[in-house]
């Protein structure tokens, strides 16, 4: 009987058998062509819609009023006396990021028992929870801040709330996906033991995904810090607010100082976050 691993006869070189017919690539080629055309169309549309121009790009960087010849000389050396103010403002931005992460965790965990497919009590509740998260994610933090500014006025706390609401949408989805990917054998064991849904959540689900959730939270911390800087420029306070203020009065040397502070703090937050995530394994 012929077997897949039949050896060649002694003294003879093995002869390669004929390969089965290769499936036709016609349909795949058509799909690839279609995708290529779609991407090209999107790029052309984006170019036209944003009034993109090569000459403006070159002028913006290298022209007589461009960044390199006009702004850069005005920006150096940095204004050393502004360093302390920069760090104070960066601390406020960091506080916005930390508080919004904390509130976001509470909101995300509250939705988690409904939003993870493998532990949700019912499919409609799962769909509802995921829909709410999708809506919260869909509204950008900046728009959220503008809405909260209307209600609360310009303040760092408005930025905290904006980041929190958007963060519940983002972290809620990430947390739910972490639970959906976990090994549910411990969950099943406690369910059979007669544990209630809340007991199963507290004693099998949360301990099972604790490290993953912590890692995701730390990852979101540096993302939130960067977002908090942006929100600062539209009334959220912190270092973003200072940069926006100094730019509006063309104090480029102070702006350079704040940018240096910003880079130092962002790198420090990223480093700490990465280090902690590595230790969590």
């Amino acid at each position: 009987m012929e077997t897949p691993f039949a050896a060649a006869a002694p003294g003879q070189a093995p002869v390669a058998p004929a390969l089965p017919a290769k499936p036709s690539a016609g349909r795949r080629r058509l799909v690839n062509l279609g995708l290529g055309l779609l991407i090209a169309g999107l790029l052309v549309y984006s170019w036209i819609d944003t009034n993109a121009s090569v000459s403006e790009f070159v002028n913006g960087f290298f022209g007589s009023k461009g960044l390199l010849r006009n702004v850069l000389p005005e920006s150096l050396p940095p204004e050393v006396s502004q360093f302390w103010d920069g760090f104070r403002a960066a601390a406020t931005t960091l506080a916005i990021a930390i508080l919004s992460i904390a509130f976001g965790i509470v909101g995300s965990l509250a939705m988690l028992p409904l939003a993870a497919r493998n532990i949700t009590p019912s499919r409609p509740l799962y769909e509802l929870a995921r829909l709410i998260q999708a809506i919260l994610r869909a509204i950008p933090e900046l728009i959220m801040l503008l809405l909260f500014n209307v209600v609360l006025g310009f303040s760092p706390f408005a930025a905290v709330l904006a980041l929190t609401v958007h963060g519940i949408g983002v972290k809620g989805k990430l947390f739910a996906e972490a639970v959906e990917e976990m090994d549910t054998s411990a969950v099943d064991a406690l369910r059979v033991a007669g544990a209630s849904r809340l007991q199963v959540f507290l004693h099998a689900v949360l301990p099972g995904v604790r490290n993953t959730l912590t890692a995701l939270t730390l990852y979101r911390l540096d993302a939130n810090f960067r977002s908090a800087v942006t929100l600062g420029a539209v009334g959220g306070g912190g270092i973003g607010f200072l940069i926006d203020n100094q730019l509006s009065v063309f104090q480029f040397k102070a702006v350079t100082t704040y940018m240096i502070v910003l880079v130092i703090v962002v790198l420090a937050v990223e480093r700490i976050s990465t280090e902690l995530r590595t230790r969590l394994g």
Partner: peptide
């Protein structure tokens, strides 16, 4: 009612960090 049956799974169904 299910409390009357305990299940031991093939995979080690323990909460690992506890």
């Amino acid at each position: 009612a299910r409390r009357e049956a305990a299940v031991v799974f093939q995979q080690i169904a323990l909460v690992k960090r506890r």
